[in-house]
Design a protein around this nucleic acid. Sequence first.
DNA 1: TGACATTGGATAGTTCCACTATCACCATGG
DNA 2: CCATGGTGATAGTGGAACTATCCAATGTCA
Lengths: 202, 202
Amino acid sequence: MQMAELSGRTGVPVPTLKYYLREGLLMPGVPTSATRSTYAQEHVERVRLVRALVETGGLSLASARAVVLALDAPVKRALDILGTAHEALPAPGSEHPESAEVADLVTELGWQVERRAVARHSLSAALEATAQAGVPVGTEELRRYARAAQTIAEVDVQSAAAAPDLTHMLRTVVVGTVMIDPVLSALRRLAQEHVTVSRLAP
Amino acid sequence: MQMAELSGRTGVPVPTLKYYLREGLLMPGVPTSATRSTYAQEHVERVRLVRALVETGGLSLASARAVVLALDAPVKRALDILGTAHEALPAPGSEHPESAEVADLVTELGWQVERRAVARHSLSAALEATAQAGVPVGTEELRRYARAAQTIAEVDVQSAAAAPDLTHMLRTVVVGTVMIDPVLSALRRLAQEHVTVSRLAP
DNA sequence: TGACATTGGATAGTTCCACTATCACCATGG
DNA sequence: CCATGGTGATAGTGGAACTATCCAATGTCA
């Protein structure tokens, strides 16, 4: 397969594929001559992955590149996978200091989370922003959200554990972490409607 | 308070405030002369809300405007609030057709959700994109995510129900729907680490 | 009173991102 | 053998979100 067919199968225009090549989002094909290369199924999958990350996951091209680079790197131990994944993913508010509220939450729930985990900063920043927006999250609500997040994480980890090898496991964790967020967001809105309707019109 | 002080209190530069004024994101102050207006606390709150929606919620300025317009409109019945909120919020993939998988999920869980609810399309699009990214969500996983989403939605609805009046209720629902997503995302990553660590190193 | 800063309103310019177009040159296949 | 399509390089486009400049009118303070 060469460029035109890759374009046809993915729905991405040729100039854009060239751009992705330049930007390191798509690995080069195998050159068959000075001016020709062929591409394989893995290129099709890569392009589809990039588009999914960008369009649905809301990543910038730069973040998408970090993700695919992480996927290409070899994996040593299962324990490293989550760290690699969370490093490769964009962490909004990573420069925000951790709030006491977050520290309390983590210890109170007995969660085993590194003191320097970026997600602590992200959570602090998100809570701060929510308060700035005029609708602060109460302690009790936060606790209930956290418990729901834990059941979600258990599903995540089980799915990842079902992967046949470490490479697939990394892929499941990285891609899942990015792509399931929109799924959860849509499910939440659906559930909001159900809960509201069943309360007001039982 | 005039423009310079509004800028000082919010940390937003004066030219940007003028821009927000032009774009209808910030309501005009009360003019005290041909070339001067004064701003009040509500303006400070509005600016902070807009910045929170844009920076943390990830909304475009256009979406943020739709949100603040919705907040300014009067509310008639509590039942309309969720509809108003979901209309004002951006719905990724709203043009995507609803998949059979989503229809099945909703009926199977007994969720009372309008046939034409946009969240159905958003969910279909998100699931499709996840599959395109090479990590499809299994039926069983989806069901478990959905149940977790329902507990989250119950917290959402309870928080909203605690509002003193319909205006505050609308505010809680709209802002909460946008701003809690990042909170949940961060909680999920924290929980992933906890679950992983307690599995691998019990 | 007069110097100076600030405001509102208008218009134009900048930066970044994600493409998209064009060009010159080359290789293959019918 | 030459039209078709590929390659790499360079340049251009369009949208979003600011940012800068200018102006005349108006406050503020020495």
